[in-house]
Nucleic acid binder design. Structure first.
Lengths: 115, 115
DNA sequence: TCTTGACCTGGAGCGCGCTCCAGATTCGAG
DNA sequence: CTCGAATCTGGAGCGCGCTCCAGGTCAAGA
């Protein structure tokens, strides 16, 4: 199977090598397979997963939230707990969208005023 | 004119006393008027402004961004610079909304999958 | 074989946004 | 006038999310 070096994985995902190692330490990704000499070899699945993590980070979720997400998707929890967790996170994101819209309304008002 | 003590202002705005002082030090609010003895006396205008700052903080703007906003609204910049700044901030918020929607789509997919 | 560069680990450092603390001062109730 | 609560200042401390560094290992080309 074709794998990626750390540098290549970083380039593909837009996440720095240091951050990839950090995410692995924190249990957000991996554990990443190693070559004979101990170097990391990222699979396509790893890259995909890193993309998910990045997506949630950009949406403002914290490292601890992401750890919860990992635990959920690894089926370490009963189904109803999974759905509950996911809905809760979704609600938090909706709150955040609402906050953004409030701020945008204020900006729009000021833009109108100064235009 | 009726003014508020620090404790009252904190209660009204939902921002801690320490944070109010911090915002003032950073130039995001105030300077707040003082009583003879040196205590802060928050006006209704101050409270309103603190509300604006809070609105933007909740939307994810940083302290430096807010400082820029303060400078703009205090008319320390030419009109076109004001509008440019405001539009730029607005665009950033839209980006953030887009990031949130992407994350919500992923969550929705997982929720569907696990339901 | 030698060199060069990518990678390894553990741990220190950093910027942000508060939050807390010590020690002094002021204010209002009794 | 006294006492306790609220506030003052300057500065230290903290949690987060990286980011950087030193000192050593591994791998591929000349």
């Amino acid at each position: 199977m074709t794998t990626l070096t750390p540098a290549a994985a970083a380039a593909r995902t837009g996440v720095s090598i240091d951050t990839l190692r950090y995410y692995e330490r924190e249990g957000l990704i991996g554990p990443i397979r190693r070559s004979a000499g101990g170097r990391r070899a990222y699979t396509e699945d790893d890259v995909f997963w890193i993309g998910l993590v990045t997506c949630f980070r950009e949406a403002g979720l914290g490292i601890a939230d992401l750890r919860g997400f990992v635990a959920i998707l690894r089926a370490e929890h009963p189904p109803q707990a999974r759905v509950a967790f996911l809905r809760e996170r979704r609600a938090a994101l909706e709150q955040q969208v609402a906050a953004l819209h409030r701020a945008m309304e204020v900006l729009d008002e000021k833009i109108t005023y100064y235009s």
